[in-house]
């Protein structure tokens, strides 16, 4: 509860008790005059007391329930925030125990898979990805051939956990991080602990990446890569089935949606593609995202069986 609400409740109770003097009355008038929000909160608090007074009318008719409920403990925020992981915990995501030390996993477009590895580590494999596991040697090796995966690595100092993403390699002992294979290199995002990364041909140059940081390691870069701070919850929102856009260009957001959906979005307005967008979207709702882009840029969307087209609108006067 905000301070304003708390103060409003105090004032409402004191006014209701009828025990305030002229000085307090003036203080209340001042408080109310100071901020429109104070007047709103005060009205709400007075209405709350009034609502309770209505209990008086029926108290002779209805028994007062005596057992305290637990509803006070719940807040809407917690209910909603809990939903995503509750779904995950309820088994929406499949868990596959591996008996063999070798295993290949493949996800289709729009598919995500949670895999429990036999060393106790967990991998969440994102859309359109290929991951191979090899736990035979002294190292636990995972080949990310395509796409993206997040790993929660079980602690085992004797057997380092190494992800090979083309020419880029990431080593951890007990930590959590994501690797995304892109055209020119690999992106690493660390959510817990610390990893080291290097690339073929420059294996003496180790880059340390800590929790809350990301780094893009190019297959062949003129400059050594650096780690940057990043909002890991946002860039890894795909694990909750979301895409969080924090000022990316519309064009790159379209590309991101197209990773997840067979119904591809085509943007026929290059100018709109350079605009930036902020928002929370559901991965599997590309038409809603397209509608948002159209609204924002004054464009129009056209849908057919194969996909969604965002076009420049002729009459821009129709903006909301």
């Amino acid at each position: 509860m905000s301070d304003i609400d708390a103060q409003a409740a105090e004032w409402a109770v004191r006014v209701d008790a009828g025990a305030i003097d002229q000085a307090e009355r003036d203080a209340l008038e001042l408080w109310l005059a100071a901020d429109a929000r104070h007047r709103g909160a005060f009205l709400r608090a007075q209405a709350g007391l009034r609502l309770l007074d209505h209990g008086r009318v029926v108290s002779k008719v209805l028994p007062i329930p005596s057992r305290p409920g637990s509803r006070l403990a719940r807040t809407p925020a917690r209910l909603v925030q809990g939903t995503g992981w509750a779904l995950a915990a309820a088994g929406v995501i499949a868990v596959a125990w591996l008996l063999s030390p070798f295993h290949d996993f493949r996800t289709e477009t729009g598919e995500q898979r949670r895999v429990a590895l036999r060393d106790g580590s967990v991998a969440i494999i994102n859309t359109d990805s290929r991951v191979g596991v090899n736990f035979v040697g002294r190292e636990r090796r995972v080949a990310l051939r395509r796409g993206e995966a997040w790993f929660q690595v079980a602690k085992d100092r004797a057997h380092p956990f190494v992800v090979d993403a083309g020419a880029v390699h990431v080593r951890a002992t007990g930590t959590a991080f994501a690797v995304r294979r892109e055209e020119q290199g690999a992106r690493v995002v660390v959510t817990e602990g610390r990893v080291v990364a290097w690339r073929d041909g420059a294996s003496a140059t180790l880059l340390a990446i800590s929790a809350g940081q990301e780094a893009f390691i190019a297959d062949a870069a003129p400059l050594p890569p650096t780690a940057q701070p990043v909002r890991t919850d946002d860039v890894l929102a795909w694990r909750r089935g979301e895409i969080v856009l924090g000022g990316e260009t519309v064009a790159s957001a379209v590309a991101e949606f197209n990773r997840y959906n067979e119904r591809k979005i085509t943007l026929r307005d290059p100018e709109a593609g350079r605009r930036t967008i902020v928002g929370y979207f559901l991965i599997d709702q590309p038409q809603q995202f397209a509608l948002a882009v159209a609204r924002m840029t004054g464009g129009e969307i056209r849908e057919d069986k194969t996909g969604i087209v965002i076009e420049h609108s002729q009459q821009k006067a129709g903006l909301p």
Partner: peptide, 17 residues
Amino acid sequence: ENHSVRGLKAILKALES
């Protein structure tokens, strides 16, 4: 008075959810 304020705050909170 203190309990009245506390009660009102709890009830307003409950009405939110």
